[in-house]
Design a protein around this nucleic acid. Structure first.
Lengths: 198, 198
DNA sequence: ACAAACCAGACGACCGGTCGCATAATCGTG
DNA sequence: CACGATTATGCGACCGGTCGTCTGGTTTGT
């Protein structure tokens, strides 16, 4: 098999892996199920990945990339200041999750809860992904501070972390309440009030 | 077997169940493991519970009770106003989790993430538990509002939800960062700043 | 013809759940 | 009260299924 098509199959595995991990979690997702849907024989799995655990770690990185790109895109929109970019980004996310029926939530949050303290491999991947994501939000807030829309008596990093934590908690609530209301609430509380200049 | 000793064994099952569910999650915890540690034969499990799922639902209720009692206790301390009671309560939780090595986090949060959108039985239990817990925090904040320490331009319920969501998100961060810093940060951001009167 | 890559199937372990047998408790009868 | 018959209960062994992982025969490419 060519190196190209191998990478392509690996990509497909990760893509489907993200979907299933997001839908059912780590332990409830079988490798067989992932392999079947992308038509890759079970015996071949270990030519792509060392183990299920390492597969999940790669899936984590594969998952976060689009989110970073999308937030970056909003940040490069010259019409939006830092805070407005964040608002636009989260509005988009809320609209999307409403369409998909409140399923899944965030893979990062789900795996942090399920295996964040039992799989060191995944913990490292999660740490890295969260750090990159958090940094980007920090940048957005920093810009907002420079532009005068975001308060400066709290560090951008602290506000980014609060936003991220509140969002993760709201995603959990969304799951059980089957509603985007918690997501809207946290965005409103933080982006439309707490983060504003006094 | 007497009804009394049966209830006692059921209690033991729930106790150990909570411990293991908290430590490893729903799907990674086997009934056998729970039953072995409390010396109850596997065949007897279904005289206590209808299924693993229903067992988890009961474990959820069994888990949240002590937290409600503890927060209630702080609220009944006449020396503390509503906000101070919340601060004292969360300080206690942080101190405890630091001693236990950042393991587990919150059973409610973990199960919301793992099975909150796949097990309707557990979802109902989670909804109920979260509602009771959230209500109690709302009461604390309401009292703080009456006593003049908590801002009144936001509803106590909204602030209670924000606190709860931020706390859950911080617990996830704690797991992967192996540190109580996220917990302290969210408490400080909300209880020492955002919730204060302007 | 040979090496490398691939993959079917098997492996042992464990899952949640069931079932029939052994034991215990209750009852009927002398 | 004694004792066999009958019912109720407890539980170890087992069910079909799935798990993640490994191995060795087969295919592929050179």
């Amino acid at each position: 098999m060519t190196t190209d098509s191998k990478q392509l199959k690996k990509q497909k595995l990760l893509e489907q892996g993200v979907t299933l991990l997001l839908e059912k979690g780590y332990h409830a997702t079988g490798l067989k199920q992932i392999l079947d849907t992308v038509q890759i024989p079970k015996g071949s799995f270990y030519t792509y990945f060392d183990s299920k655990e390492q597969f999940a770690a790669e899936a984590i990185n594969h998952y976060i990339e689009p989110f970073i790109l999308r937030l970056s895109a909003h940040l490069q929109n010259p019409e939006l200041d830092g805070l407005a970019a964040l608002k636009a980004y989260y509005s988009e996310l809320i609209a999307e999750v409403a369409e998909t029926g409140f399923k899944g939530g965030c893979l990062l949050g789900n795996l942090m809860g399920e295996i964040g303290d039992t799989s060191s491999l995944c913990r490292d991947a999660l740490l890295n992904a969260v750090a990159r994501y958090s940094d980007l939000q920090k940048v957005a807030l920093q810009r907002g501070q420079q532009q005068g829309s975001v308060r400066v008596d709290r560090s951008a990093q602290a506000m980014a972390d609060l936003m991220l934590n509140g969002w993760q908690g709201a995603l959990l609530r969304m799951k059980v309440e089957q509603s985007v209301a918690p997501l809207q609430a946290v965005c409103q509380d933080l982006l439309d009030d707490y983060f504003l200049v006094r």
